[in-house]
Amino acid sequence: MTIRTAITVNGKDTSREVEARTLLVHYLREELGLTGTHIGCDTSNCGACTVLLDGEAAKSCTIFAAQIHDCHVTTIEGAAQADGSFSPMQEGFRQEHGLQCGYCTPGMIMASTALLTENPNPTEEEIRHALEGNLCRCTGYEMIVNAVRWAAENPNFTSGGVK
């Protein structure tokens, strides 16, 4: 059974006839070719697939594409600023060495971005709690916490269009 779904992804309207069971993460990766959103588990524990769904962090491996007809999704490919600068969160991860292999990073950045929308100045404990649903096997997390703090302290970061 197929269903037509229309989703705005990174500001662009997309529409596809999909199988009802198509997961959002597969819609993004395979229908739209947005492969920055990753898959790391099958129980929604790891958070590698985290995207913003109408501004809130959501795990795209546990959502059907057809379920979010007419919604807005932001993926890591849409995280940068309009002038091409990294977002403060992207830059924070770079400055603080908040990534190693980079596989969990897109999900981590999207979850952290959602956190700062809710709480622009989180403590270390609040950051660690907010990121409970995102697993990183490389960093031991301290530098991810520092990256989120960097973004909180530099909300107006811009590289002046330099990518």
Partner: peptide, 21 residues
């Protein structure tokens, strides 16, 4: 020194095997 690897990986432009189609 900040990493040369990062600009790709923080923008979703990394290329892992499952990204190849």
């Amino acid at each position: 020194v900040l990493r040369k690897e990062d600009p790709n990986l923080i923008t979703g432009n990394g290329q892992y095997v499952d990204d190849l189609q």
